[in-house]
Amino acid sequence: MIDDKKLIKKCLKKDTGALEELYKQFSPKLYGICLRYTKNKMEAEDLLHDGFIRILDNLETYRGDGSFEGWLCRIMVTTAINYYRKKGTRYEDVEINNIGQEDVIENDITSMMSHNEMLDVIQQLPEGYRVVFNMYAIEGYSHKEISEMLNISENTSKTQLLKARRTLQKKIFTDKQIKYEKSA
């Protein structure tokens, strides 16, 4: 495997081999991000395409401060956020008090779920819930950061997250119940 810096240099010279190497090396990770933020594979592929082109366009701005993979992931997340911003995704602002308590999820239920099942559950979330949940729960952004990035209030970010969690809980319970019933 070629060193990241050498790879970047070659990519900046538009070396087709280097570009392909970059794609092969990092596209699985990036594709995983795209799948989480989109509702289906087709959208994820479009997002991967757009995100990778954006990476290539901005490659010269990478200063080598942090990890290259982290930099690539951030660009991909930003591309996803911009994608939904352009699309005009609405984020409902609901009073937090009106949202009921989350159900307790037992560990044994979640551990039985595969990646594809969990992905399927996330993809079924409404766009607003999905984006906020991904950003908060998986990427680790704070509500403040999310509110700035999505141009929404912090409260909105919080409500979106809570509603996303509730929806996910319900989905997981429902799916597991169906599975139990079928297996029984």
Binding site: T16, E20, G32, R36, E45, H49, F133, I138, Q169
Partner: peptide, 27 residues
């Protein structure tokens, strides 16, 4: 939060192979 943890752990190393058509489009 259990759900956050669950999904965070699950997708930590999630790296599915993208379809080959994507690379062709990028190229």
């Amino acid at each position: 939060n259990k759900i956050d943890e669950l999904f965070s752990e699950a997708f930590k190393g999630y790296s599915p192979a993208p379809p080959g058509a994507v690379w062709d489009r990028i190229k």
